[in-house]
Design a protein around this nucleic acid. Sequence first.
DNA 1: TGTACATCAGTGAACGCGCGTTCACTGATGTAC
DNA 2: TGTACATCAGTGAACGCGCGTTCACTGATGTAC
Lengths: 178, 178
Amino acid sequence: MPRDGSPTRERLLDAGLKLAHAGALSSLRVDEVVNAAGVAKGTFYVHFATREDFLVALHSRFHDQLARRIEQSAGTLPHGVQRLLRGSLAYLDGCCEQHAIKAMLLGARAEPAIQQAVSAQNARFAALAAAEFAAMKWPGPEQAARLWVGMVAEAAIAEAEAGRRLVPLRQALRHFLE
Amino acid sequence: MPRDGSPTRERLLDAGLKLAHAGALSSLRVDEVVNAAGVAKGTFYVHFATREDFLVALHSRFHDQLARRIEQSAGTLPHGVQRLLRGSLAYLDGCCEQHAIKAMLLGARAEPAIQQAVSAQNARFAALAAAEFAAMKWPGPEQAARLWVGMVAEAAIAEAEAGRRLVPLRQALRHFLE
DNA sequence: TGTACATCAGTGAACGCGCGTTCACTGATGTAC
DNA sequence: TGTACATCAGTGAACGCGCGTTCACTGATGTAC
């Protein structure tokens, strides 16, 4: 199996991202992916042991990119409500550009194959948020963080459905922190 | 096709509810359902035109029961934060008893077959919540309501995973309204 | 009351097809001598 | 520089099986006369 950075492997993942839509990772077919990537079906199995492996890789890559974006946006801000909002909006901006977000948030959670990866991903974002809630002196910062992540995800799905930023929704989001 | 209240039809739906777990409506097989219900495979198609129809019926029945529960709990309380919390906790209590909740919330949204039914269901709960946010004089009550429903759903999933009520999580939920 | 016929929920073997996976083969690139 | 061989990403036809759907049939219940 070729190394991770292989161009063909990337092309397959790119094609998967392009095809992931409408909350349905489960309906992502190997045939579709190889057609969109313009490679033979066998090539798929040169790079991924199974379809499940492919889905996990797709999911990871997607969220790794988002996580980088969040970290960059927060920069050197001190922990607290401003940093939480900055990171959350960066997340929403990142999602807006990705029509695959619905598949990644909903489809992924429903796909038994990658539930472990999804749990890890949720824990990762929740941990980021928990630091902010702790700095804000909220009681039960871990619980608040988990709920906050759920709420931001709901906002991301709404924006993905609308296909654009929803400013009133973002204001409502902020209002829950006041 | 027999009428709606047919005992066999109910047995099939009961079996489906029992089998729906781990967020995976997509992996609910007709074979599994008829085995669990103790009827022949052909009987399934006496009562449902397609597998999709069955999933929609399962989803509706589940949420109708929850909705009834919420309405009863709210009773004659005036609109406002107390009524919102009362209804939300009733929702969580109802979910706790149903291990199928994860499938219904996550699996359903990911299943293209029943997305329309899911949207309608979300709108229904959001409308209930919006009335409360409006009474609470929140700006953008519809937006707040949508986010709130997402947050409560996240709490429901957490409790379903834990298999019990999570009091600190419920306190965190309340804290977002203060 | 008894006989013939209609209705219809229920049955389960069989069908067909979609789709993930395999595998023998190709052809380009690299290495040894 | 040329020849032989090894490596390995890429190919695509073929396989096999899981699963939704069909359909000819059964047997119980109801109705007509």
